[in-house]
Design a protein around this nucleic acid. Structure first.
Lengths: 214, 214
DNA sequence: ACCTGAACACCGTTCAAGT
DNA sequence: ACCTGAACACCGTTCAAGT
C-alpha cells in the first residue's frame, strides 16, 4: 500500500484504540503488533506517530488523566478547600477505576505528562489560594495522590486479577476468588473514604494552627 | 553438563541473584536469560525451581517484605497504637525504598505472598488488640499501605528514573535531572510524614469517639 | 531430580523501499 | 510524509535428551 493520500492513522486514533485494547483485553495484550492489527495496519507504522511504545503509553495515560474534574478548584477559600480536596480526590479515583487495567502504568508516576502537571497545578494553586503555605500545598497534593493511587491499585492490580485468570482457566466455576476480589474492592473504597475523613480532620486542625486568623 | 550431583541452583540463590540484578541494573535487566547467565546456568534451568517468572518475582518481593519490622506490634494498647502504626509505616517504607527498582512490582499488590499476609495480620491484630473495631482495623491497615507505597512509588518510579537514564546517555554531565529527582524524593518523604501526622490526629479523634471509655 | 540445547511463539524497534 | 515487509536482537516457556 505504501503512503495513502489520506493518512490511515493519527495519534488520537492510536491512543483511543490502545486504551480500548487495554480496557477490554488487559495490559499484556497491548503489543505494538496487536495494536497495529486492530488498527488495520502493520506494526512499524505506529512509529511514524510515536517514537516508542512508552511514548504511546504516556499519551494513553494523559488521556485518562484528562477525564479528572478540576472545576472545584475554580475558587476556593478557607471555608471550601477541604471540600474541594475531597471532591477532587473522588473524581481522580473514579478516572483511574474506570480503567483498571491501566492503573499499574498510571501509578508509574507523573513524569512529563501535560495533564499530570495540569492536575498538580490546579490542586497546588487552589490550596495556596486558600491560605496554605506553598510547601504544605505541595505535600498535601502528593499525599492525596498516594491515597487515590493506593486505593485504586489495591482494588485492581494486586495479583488478584492474575489469580482470577488462573482460577478461571483451571476451574471455570470457582467464583470464590471473585467474591474475595469484590471484598477487597469494597475494603479499598472504605479505606479511601476513611483516609479522606481522617486526613481532612487532621489537616483542618493543622490549618487552624497555621492560619490562626481562620 | 546435565544433572550435577550437587544442585547448582536453589530458590534462595536464585532470589538473591534476582534481587541483586534488579537493584544494580534495573527491572528490565531481569530476564530469565540474564539471570541464568549471572548464576552460571542456562535459561530454562530456572524452571526447575520456579513455575514462571511471575512466581520468581513473587518470591523476590516476599524477601523484601520480610525485612519489615513488626516487633512494635508485640503489645499495643489504647496508649500506643498510634505510635506503633507510625513506627511500622516508617519501617515498611524503608524496606521499599531500599529496593527502588522493585517498587513497581511491590506495588502490584499483596497477592498470595506469605510475608504480605504476615504484615497485614500483625497490623490488623495489633489494632484490634488496641480496641479498634475489626472493620476499622482493616481499613486503617490498607490506608497506611497506600501512604507507604504512594510515597515510595512517587520518589522512584515516576518516569524520572527513565528520564535520568535517557539524559545520562545523551548528556553524561547533565545533573539537573538528578537534582530534580532529589527534590521529588524530599517532597515524597515530607508528604509521607505530613500524612502520618494528619492521619494520626484524625484517627485519634475517631478513636476517641469509638472508645469513649478512653 | 536437575541441567542442557533446540525450538516455538512472541516481543520492540530499525531500516530500506515504495508512493 | 506515511506505510510496507524483512530483519535484528531480544523475550518467556516447553520439551526431549542427558545423567
Amino acid at each position: 500500500m505504501a503512503r495513502p493520500r489520506n493518512p490511515l492513522l493519527s495519534r488520537d486514533r492510536i491512543v483511543a484504540a490502545a486504551l480500548e485494547l487495554v480496557d477490554t483485553e488487559g495490559l499484556p495484550a497491548l503489543s505494538t503488533r496487536r495494536l497495529a492489527a486492530v488498527l488495520g495496519v502493520s506494526g512499524p507504522s505506529l512509529y511514524n506517530h510515536f517514537a516508542t511504545k512508552d511514548a504511546l503509553l504516556d499519551a494513553v495515560v494523559d488521556e485518562v488523566l484528562g477525564e479528572v474534574d478540576l472545576s472545584m478548584w475554580a475558587q476556593v477559600d478557607k471555608e471550601t478547600w477541604a471540600d474541594a480536596l475531597t471532591r477532587w480526590a473522588r473524581s481522580y479515583r473514579s478516572a483511574l477505576v474506570a480503567h483498571p487495567n491501566l492503573i499499574p502504568v498510571l501509578a508509574q508516576g507523573p513524569g512529563r505528562r501535560t495533564n499530570a502537571l495540569r492536575l498538580a497545578d490546579a490542586v497546588f494553586g487552589g490550596l495556596v489560594d486558600a491560605g496554605w503555605p506553598r510547601g504544605d500545598a505541595t505535600r498535601i497534593g502528593a499525599l492525596m495522590r498516594y491515597l487515590v493511587f493506593g486505593s485504586a491499585l489495591g482494588s485492581f492490580a494486586g495479583g488478584f486479577v492474575d489469580d482470577q485468570q488462573i482460577y478461571a482457566a483451571d476451574y471455570p466455576h470457582l467464583d470464590q476468588a471473585h467474591l474475595l476480589a469484590e471484598h477487597r474492592r469494597s475494603i479499598d473504597e472504605g479505606a479511601f473514604e476513611t483516609g479522606i475523613s481522617a486526613l481532612m480532620e487532621g489537616l483542618t486542625l493543622q490549618y487552624g494552627r497555621t492560619n490562626p486568623a481562620g
